[in-house]
Structures are given as C-alpha cells and as structure tokens.
Amino acid sequence: MTDKNGAKGLFISFEGIDGSGKSTQARMLAQALRAEGRDVVLTREPGGSPGAEEIRALVLQGDPDRWSAETELLLFTAARRDHLERTIRPALAAGKVVICDRFADSTRMYQGLSRGNLRAQVDALHDLMIGVEPDLTLLFDMDPSAGLARAKSRATVEERFEDFGLGLQEKMRAGFLALADEFKDRFRIINGNRDIDVVAADVQACVLAKLA
C-alpha cells in the first residue's frame, strides 16, 4: 500500500516495561513524522477504539487480583480485535503509518508470562482472532526499578500492573529481551536509560530506515 507521498504504509509497535518511556517516544515519533508530511495514526493498547477503551478501564484499574491471567487474556484479545477492525486495518489500508503503544507482544508477556505459563494459549488465540504482527517493533529497555519509580510517579488510576511490584517488572524485562531474540527480524532494542532526545533520535533513525 502507498500513501499520497509515495511512502509505504507501516505498522510500528512500541513495547517495554512500565515506565520505560515508550509512550512519550511514540508521541515524539508521531510529531516528527507528521512534520515531514506523513499521514500518521497514533494509537494505544488496550484501547484505540471506543469499545477497546471501555475494556481498558476494566483491565488497568482496580485491585491487582481483580482478574486472573486467563480472563485478562480474553479481555485483551477482545479489545485488540475491536482495535484492529476499527482503527488499525483501515489506517493501513489507506497507506498510513500506524504507531501503536503496545500490541500483542505485551499480552505475550503480561498475560503469557506474568502469573504462570500461558504463552501457548496467548499465541493460539492471537493466531485465531488477530493474525497480524507489526512491521517493526521497538523495545525500550531500561532498569526495572527506575521504570517502576517513573510509572508510579504518574499517580494515575491505571496502576493495576504497577501494583504487582518490582518483581513483575524484572520478569517482564527479561521476557521482552527474550522475545526480541525470538523475533529478531522485526524487533529493535532501544536503550531507554538515556536522555529523551537521544532516545528519540535513535527511534527516528530506525523508523526512517524502515520507511526508506
């Protein structure tokens, strides 16, 4: 697919532990690409469509033990399916650059790894109901204790996963790095421990190389 500027439509996901800076970097990338005249859709998961945003409130708020990992998997997949149908696929079909703050790799980690080993179920449900992977995944790697402190400092109502504590963040970091090794062709690891503008320059270089 090609947009009005002759650029190929691209699906980019941003992944990382809580507080890794990926949401800020997603916004900065969207601004940079728009400044170049590219048509960009900036979206997020869970969320990104009206129905998925309603599910977001269910899974990110409340007591940490509100849902089992199995129930979360079903909720996240339902949200992703609605997001895919109503936001991602139409944008890609129009040749736009889609920047998504989290996608299926987060489910592979947070539900597939966090409280048991549900990775096989996550992948099976993904293949059945989603069947889409990003063209490029940027993984923001940083110290888990620093990321958790940053995430908790935001003081929002969406802190359910942060409330699981440092142990989960350490487990997620190791899991994301293993996932990047598993899917080498689409993952790029970005050092998130550096100055925000230095990180942004690396992000833009990766994406522009993919767009070229």
Rank of each mutant, 00 (worst) to 15 (best):
N191I: 09
K171A: 03
K8L: 03
E45Y: 02
L125Y: 04
T156V: 01
G165T: 03
L166E: 01
A35N: 08
T43I: 09
L118T: 04
I17N: 11
A205M: 14
L42R: 06
V207Y: 13
V59D: 06
T43M: 10
L73Y: 00
E133S: 13
A149K: 15
R150F: 02
T107C: 10
A200F: 10
A35T: 05
L139V: 11
L58R: 09
G131H: 14
S106E: 06
A212N: 15
D163T: 04
F140C: 00
D163F: 01
A151P: 07
I189D: 08
T156E: 02
V97K: 06
R38Q: 12
R66A: 09
V97E: 10
I189A: 07
K4W: 06
Q204A: 14
E162G: 00
K152P: 03
P144W: 08
V122A: 08
R160V: 00
I99F: 08
D39V: 08
D123M: 05
E45C: 02
M129R: 12
R80S: 08
L125C: 12
C206L: 14
R34F: 02
G192D: 09
A104G: 09
T77C: 03
F103W: 14
R186E: 10
L92A: 07
A205E: 15
P50H: 01
A79Y: 01
D163C: 02
A79T: 02
T107R: 05
G62F: 00
L139M: 15
K210Q: 15
I88Y: 07
E182A: 13
P46G: 02
A35W: 01
F14K: 06
D101R: 10
D143H: 08
Q121Y: 11
L177K: 06
V203Q: 12
L84R: 04
L118K: 04
I88T: 09
K210C: 15
F176D: 01
D127E: 15
N191W: 07
A69T: 02
R119V: 15
G51V: 05
W67F: 04
F103T: 10
D65W: 03
S114R: 14
E158A: 14
D195S: 07
I190G: 11
R115F: 15
I17V: 14
M172L: 06
D185S: 11
D123C: 01
C206E: 15
